[in-house]
């Protein structure tokens, strides 16, 4: 193999690092997207027997949004292996204990259970907040688009913008806002 071809090979099979912002995202729907990047299914060279999976860095995992009353109702099962060792932990409890756990379990569950799954999971980095170690952020060359729009809170928009926003009518001066 000539030098040029060798470099071509490295370029084609290079691992790319992607970043994904979990803010206001559904972890179970996002997991389906993240999974594709971890396994390399977004590449035209994908084949289940070639090792072309990428690395995904998830940030803001503390800010995920579950659907409906999932925070209160969804239970995560664990069994210690001993009799009576079964525990059911609610999603909000799991999230308080470890804010990266729900997204991690969602991605793990989204992939097929085979021998590769645990090794593929090693390529997923999850951080609860915005802060990422410098050696990881310098590798990132691509960002995965979110599935949902991140809503902006009214008190986070500066006052001038709010005043400029078109209004149909003004409240009367004696109107009492609830």
């Amino acid at each position: 193999m000539s030098a040029a071809k060798r470099v071509q090979q490295w370029a084609t099979f290079a691992r790319t690092w992607h970043i994904f912002d979990c803010k206001w995202q559904d972890p179970y729907q996002s997991a389906e997207v993240i999974k594709k990047y971890l396994l390399g299914m977004h590449k035209p060279i994908y084949h289940p027997m070639n090792d072309c999976g990428d690395v995904v860095v998830c940030i803001n995992s503390r800010e995920i949004a579950l659907r409906g009353n999932d925070w209160r109702q969804r239970a995560y099962f664990h069994h210690t292996g001993y009799p009576g060792g079964a525990t059911w932990t609610l999603a909000w409890e799991v999230h308080n204990k470890d804010p990266t756990m729900i997204i991690k379990k969602a991605v793990y569950k989204a992939m097929r259970g085979n021998l590769q799954r645990r090794h593929t999971m090693q390529r997923l980095f999850i951080y609860p907040g915005e802060e990422i170690p410098e050696d990881i952020v310098q590798n990132v060359t691509n960002q995965i688009r979110q599935l949902r729009l991140v809503p902006t809170r009214l008190d986070h928009i500066d006052e001038e913008e709010v005043k400029k926003f078109p209004k149909v009518m003004d409240y009367p001066t004696d109107y009492v806002l609830k």
């Binding site: 370029a11 035209p44 060359t141 691509n142 960002q143």
Partner: peptide, 30 residues
């Protein structure tokens, strides 16, 4: 045109962007 690489058909703006950036991360298909 040569074999595919991860940078084929990529937006060249990504080369100079500091990620994460909502410009590249926000959903633009809604």
């Amino acid at each position: 045109q040569g074999p595919w690489t991860p940078f084929t058909f990529k937006d060249p703006e990504l080369n100079v962007a500091t990620l994460p950036d909502p410009k590249f991360g926000a959903n633009n298909r809604l």
